[in-house]
Write a protein that binds this DNA or RNA. Sequence first.
DNA 1: GTCTATAAAGCGATAGAC
DNA 2: GTCTATCGCTTTATAGAC
Lengths: 185, 185
Amino acid sequence: MKAIAERSDILPQLAEVFRAHGYEGATLALIGEATSLGKGSLYHFFPGGKSQMAAEVLAEIDRWFEDNIFTPLQAADDPARAVAEMVEAVDRYFRSGQRVCLVGVIALGAARDSFATQVRDYFSRWQTALTAALKRLGLGAAAARRRAEAALLSIQGALVLARAMDDPKVFSRAMADLKKQLLAA
Amino acid sequence: MKAIAERSDILPQLAEVFRAHGYEGATLALIGEATSLGKGSLYHFFPGGKSQMAAEVLAEIDRWFEDNIFTPLQAADDPARAVAEMVEAVDRYFRSGQRVCLVGVIALGAARDSFATQVRDYFSRWQTALTAALKRLGLGAAAARRRAEAALLSIQGALVLARAMDDPKVFSRAMADLKKQLLAA
DNA sequence: GTCTATAAAGCGATAGAC
DNA sequence: GTCTATCGCTTTATAGAC
C-alpha cells in the first residue's frame, strides 16, 4: 500500500461523495474526509477544483460503462445473452438500487448545464449500444430505439423510486421486469 | 396586488427554487431573489429556516397531488377515464418534462433522510390511489399494485431522462406509452 | 506530493430599527 | 411585515513550508 495517492484510487472515492451528496452538497471537507487527502493534495491533482473533480469522475464513469456495458452490447456473439448480462451488470453496479446514478443526479440538478454534453452523451451512447443489440435480436430500427429508451428510463426511475421508498426490492423487481421486456418478441 | 406577502404566494416560488437547485443548492440569496423578500421576511414566515421552507413546500405539493390526482383516482365514476386524466394532469404538472419532480430530487439527494417520511408517503399514497383505480378496471390486487409501481417508476425515469437528453419529447413519448400500458387488458 | 495556514467570499441565521 | 446590518461559521481556493 502506497502512501502516495494515485488518481485511480481517488476517483472512485470522489464518485461516492458526489453520489451521496450531489454536486452542490459535496463539500471539500467531505471530499477530503473520504479521500483522506488535504486540500493541498486535492488541488494538486485537480487544479480546477470541484468542477474538475466532477468532470473527471464523470469521465471515469463513462469509461467504465463503455468497457463493461456499451462495448459488450455491440460486440457480443449472442445479443440475447448480452442484453441479459447488461441488466445483471446494472443491478450489480447500482447495488440493487442502494447506490444512485451520479449522471442522473447531475441531470436533475443545477449543475446539469455545466456538464450537459457529458450527461447527454452517457445516455445517448447507452441507447445506441442497446439499440444495436436489440436490432440484432430481430427488432426493427424504430422499435429497437424506442425499447432502448424505455429501458434507460426504467433504470433511472427504479433508482429514484427505490431510494424514495427506501426499499431495494423495488429496484430488483424493476430489473427482473426489464430483462423480460427487453427480450420479449 | 398586495405589497404584503402571503404564504400562498410564497410557497410556489419557493418550490421552483428548490426544484431548480435542489435542497443544498437553494441558497437564501436565491430564495430571496425569487420571492423578492429579504431574509427578515423569510424568517418571519419560516422561523425554522430552510428546512421548514422545504418541509412546507413538500406539504403543499402533497396537498396538490391529493386534491388533483389521488382523490380523483379513487372517487371517479369511470376509472379508465380517471387513469387517462391522471396521465394528462401529470404531463401538464411537469410541463412535459421541463419541470422536475421535487420529491424525486430530494429522494436522490442527501436531504432524503430529513424528509424520509414525506417522500415515502407521497409515492406510497400515489401508488395506493392508482392501485385502487386499476383494481376497479378489473385487475387483480397484486397485478394492480405492480402496474401502479411501474407507472410511478416510468414518470420519475422519464423526468430524469428528458432532462438528461434535454428533450421534452422523451417525456411526452413516455406519457403516451404510460397511458396505453395502464389501460391495457 | 502533502500539509497547515489563511484569504476572500458566501452560507444560514439573528437582532433590532422602522 | 419588511428591511439592513451583522454574527459566526463554512465554503472554495491559494500560498508556502516541508
